[in-house]
Structures are given as C-alpha cells and as structure tokens.
Amino acid sequence: MNIIGLYNYWIVVVLMLIGFFIVIAHENLIKKLVGLSIFQTSVFFLYISMGKVAGATAPILDENYQLYSNPLPHVLILTAIVVGIATTAMGLALVVRIYEAYGSIEESDIQVQDNNDRLEDYLEAYGHKNDTHLFNQDKDE
C-alpha cells in the first residue's frame, strides 16, 4: 500500500481529529467553533481529493486534452462550504448573545450560572421560598 502517495487522505484524517479534539476539549465557545470549522474543512479536503484524477486537467472541453478531473465533488463541496459558513456565522451569533446574557463565553462559568438557576427552581418547588414574584409578574402585565 502506497502510504505516502495517499498523503492528502492523511491530512484529512489528521485535520478531522484535530478539529474534533478541539470541539471536545476546549471550554471556550469560540474555540469550539474554530474546531468545528477545522472538522468541516477536513471533509472538504476529502471530497476535493476524490474528484482529482491523476494526470487530468480541469474539466473544460478542449481538443488537446482527453483526461478530465471529476467536477461533481468540487461542486458539491461548494455547497458544503456555504453550509459551513452559515453554521459558523450562526454559532458566532449565538456566542455573542450568550456573552450578553451570561457575561462569559467559558462553558464552566455558564454551567455554574445555569446550575444556580436550577437550584432556585428546586427551592421554589420544594423549599419554603416565597413565590409571590410569579404573582407579581402576572399582575405587572
């Protein structure tokens, strides 16, 4: 098996794992999105590599050439790139709003705040906390 000849696939695998690792291991929400982008980019490489035919040229009809690369995977990946950009944009927009709402983009900080919220819910359901605030809320409206 020609291991070096398949170097582009090695790049795919390495990038994929790097991206995946960043998504899992990092606490920072923006770094996670960067990881996600790297992960998606590795798939672009996969598609682009498979469309390339050795010794072939761009698929533009010309009398001098007989062998053309397969343009379909490249076209598909244009769509996937657009999808990837939309996802990243959406994710970053969410991060902006998370920062406005929580004052942090570190996952652990956010989790602490969420757990406090949940504790309050618990106290309200089973503890002796005064729940007049709900009543007041309704009245205000």
Binding site: V23, F39, Y47, I98
Partner: peptide, 27 residues
C-alpha cells in the same frame, strides 16, 4: 430565556458534527 441560547449552541455543535458525519458517509 437565556438558557435557550446555550441549548441552541449545544445543539448546533452536536448537530453539525452529526451532519458532517453524514456527509463523510455520502462522500
């Protein structure tokens, strides 16, 4: 609800990983 934002973010990360796995399969 601000918790919807983190929920949506979580879904975005996991959903994108899922979709990317599918597209790898298709490829």
């Amino acid at each position: 609800d601000r918790r919807a934002l983190t929920a949506s973010y979580q879904y975005l990360v996991m959903g994108t990983i899922g979709a990317t796995f599918i597209i790898i399969g298709v490829g």
